[in-house]
């Protein structure tokens, strides 16, 4: 028996919004420690890694490890039927071929449940080693989203250059070029508005805008985002989901031919 309850459906909607741009379907691996998902986009250029800890749920029970393959468009149809303030309970029997989403209104006067067929998906799991990154940039998530959106107008790729002075995002194309520099903030009223840089050595890497923009769909999950970079390894874009876990995106850098 698997049962996981979140006080607000809104958070699950945000999680789904953060992954469904990149993935059509995905396997949710449920265990005692929580719900994990690791999946690559169709082109195998980027990867989503989601972790929702069991202690982040209002109620969590997982008697046996369970892998639930879900069509994310169908899951989105179901979550559309919930109000953000509804409680959501995800339920499945051991070895079941369906999962049930139950929504309860705050006053408990409306209870709805939706059953969805599960899918058997081929799992292609990548082993991602612990890595010490040359640069870790932390910044407001809305700022990162804005930069990605703005630079997409000027080129297909963004060059990210990180030094101890700051981080620079650049794009260029037929119409011209664009550069955005962010310095480390010296003092801020709110911690989530800070820009900070941990640097071992400077890094310059190029990434496809299309994927970066998909990653920013996670912006509503977290006020801050971190970008971890080293020469010639994939970028990690991480959003901490308060009291629940994290979502990480990996993106292979582009290589000049």
């Amino acid at each position: 028996m698997f049962e996981a309850r979140l006080i607000s459906s809104g958070i699950l909607k945000k999680v789904l919004d953060a992954i469904k741009d990149l993935l059509n379907e995905a396997t949710f691996d449920c265990s005692d420690s929580g719900i994990q998902l690791q999946a690559m986009d169709n082109s195998h250029v980027s990867l989503v890694s989601l972790n929702m800890r069991s202690d982040g749920f209002d109620k969590y029970r997982c008697d046996r490890n369970l892998s639930m393959g879900m069509n994310l468009a169908n899951m989105a149809k179901i979550l559309k039927c919930a109000n953000n303030t509804d409680t959501v309970t995800i339920k499945a029997q051991d070895n079941a071929d369906t999962v049930t989403f139950m929504f309860e209104s705050q006053n408990q006067e409306k209870v709805s449940d939706y059953e969805m067929k599960l899918m058997n998906l081929d799992q292609e799991h990548l082993g991602i080693p612990e890595t010490d990154y040359a640069c870790i940039v932390r910044m407001p998530s809305h700022e990162f989203a804005r930069i990605c959106r703005d630079l997409t107008q000027f080129g297909e790729s963004v060059v990210i250059t990180c030094t101890k002075e700051g981080v620079r995002f650049s794009a260029s194309g037929d119409s011209g070029s664009a550069n955005i520099k962010l310095a480390q903030t010296s003092s801020v009223d709110k911690e989530e508005e800070a820009v900070s840089i941990e640097m071992q050595e400077p890094v310059t890497l190029t990434f496809a805008c299309q994927y970066l923009n998909s990653f920013t769909k996670a912006t509503p999950l977290s006020p801050q985002v971190s970008l971890s970079m080293s020469a010639d390894v994939p970028l990690v874009v991480e959003y901490q989901i308060p009291d629940l876990g994290h979502i990480r995106y990996y993106l292979a850098p582009k290589i000049e031919e």
Partner: peptide, 14 residues
Amino acid sequence: TSEQPKLGSYYEYE
């Protein structure tokens, strides 16, 4: 021009 490698060229499949 630039080439877009896949993640499999950086990480091993488990």
